[in-house]
Design a protein around this nucleic acid. Structure first.
Lengths: 153, 153
DNA sequence: TAAAACCCTGGAGTGCACTCCAGGCAAGCC
DNA sequence: GGCTTGCCTGGAGTGCACTCCAGGGTTTTA
C-alpha cells in the first residue's frame, strides 16, 4: 500500500508546505519515493510522466523497480519550472521528443524555449497588473471601506 | 446558431490575438454578445458564471435577454484578473457570496484579498525564477550549443 | 517466517473549467 | 410570410492533468 496521504487542502491559496528535500550529492541512483521527496510530485505522476513520454527511459533495478539518475532529476527540475509557467504537458512532451530525436531538432527547441520565455514575460506583466488591482482594492478595504463598504465590489 | 468560431490554437503558447474592445461610455446596458466582445469570454461562459453564482443577478430585457450593466462589466474585470492568478472559480464564488452577503463579511473579504496578494507575489517570484532558468538555457542553445549540443537536457 | 513497507502494471475514475447540444422563442428585413 | 440572426434553457460532453484501484510482486524489519 503506497503511503499517499497528502491532505487535499481545499482552503485558500496558501500553497501546501511541500518542502522539497535537497538531494544528496555523490549518488546517482534514487528510488521513486526518494524522487517524490525531492520533487513534490506523487509516484503516480512520475510513472504517468514516463508513460506519456515526458521522461526518458528510466533505469530499472534487477527486480524491475525504477532507479532515477541525477540527470533524470535535473530534467524533472526543468519540467517543474515549465509546468508552473502553465505550459501544457503536451508541449513539454514535444520538447522531450525533440531532445530524444537529436541534434537536428536544435533550432526548433531553441524557438520553443524563446516562445516560452516571451510567454513567461507577458504572464509576469499580467500578474503585476493584477497585483496593482489587488493593492488598490485592499487599500480601499483598509481605509475608507470599514464603515461605508456596502457593496461597490 | 451562435457565432462561436474561435479556432482552437493548439500551437505554442502564443496567446490568441483576443483584442478586447473598449467599452463605450455613456451606456449602461449591453447584450451578451457585446460583453463577449469586451471580455473575451464566450457567451457560454458568461451564462455559466451566472449559474454557479459568480455573477450577481443580471438584468433582463422584457423578452428575457440578459442586459449587462457597467457595474457587471467591472465585476467581470475583477474576475478576469483573479482568474489569471490561478484562483479557483470556487474561491471567486465564495468572494461573490460574501459581497452579496453584505457588510459583516468585510473582514473575511479583506483577508481573502490579502491571501491572494501574497499568492500572486510568490507566483511572480516563481516565474522570475523560471525566467532565469530559461535565459540560461537559451544562452546555452544560442552560443556554445550549436555544434556540440548532443543531448545535455 | 511472518508482517509491514515499498514497488509494479493497465486501466478506470476524478475534478475543474469550460463547451456544446437540442429544441425553442423573438426581432429585423426582403 | 419566410428567413436569418441572436438569444434562451437544462443537461450532457470534453480536455487536461492527474489520481486511484485491483491485483500482485519484493524487500526489510521484528
Amino acid at each position: 500500500m503506497e503511503t499517499t496521504a497528502e491532505a487535499t487542502g481545499t482552503d485558500i491559496c496558501v500553497a501546501p508546505p511541500e518542502r522539497e528535500q535537497r538531494r544528496p550529492d555523490g549518488r546517482d541512483n534514487y528510488t521513486i519515493s526518494e524522487v517524490v521527496a525531492f520533487t513534490g510530485l506523487t509516484a503516480h505522476t512520475l510513472r504517468w510522466y514516463e508513460r506519456i513520454g515526458l521522461m526518458p527511459h528510466i533505469d530499472r533495478s534487477h527486480t524491475g523497480q525504477r532507479r532515477y539518475s541525477n540527470r533524470d532529476l535535473d530534467w524533472l527540475g526543468l519540467v517543474g519550472k515549465l509546468r508552473l509557467t502553465g505550459m501544457p504537458v503536451a508541449d513539454m512532451v514535444r520538447y522531450a521528443e525533440m531532445v530524444r530525436a537529436g541534434d537536428h531538432t536544435y533550432l526548433e527547441r531553441y524557438e520553443l524555449l524563446e516562445a516560452t520565455r516571451r510567454d513567461v514575460r507577458s504572464r509576469i506583466a499580467e500578474l503585476q497588473d493584477t497585483l496593482a488591482v489587488l493593492d488598490r482594492k485592499i487599500d480601499f478595504y483598509g481605509d475608507a471601506g470599514r464603515a461605508l463598504a456596502s457593496e461597490r465590489s
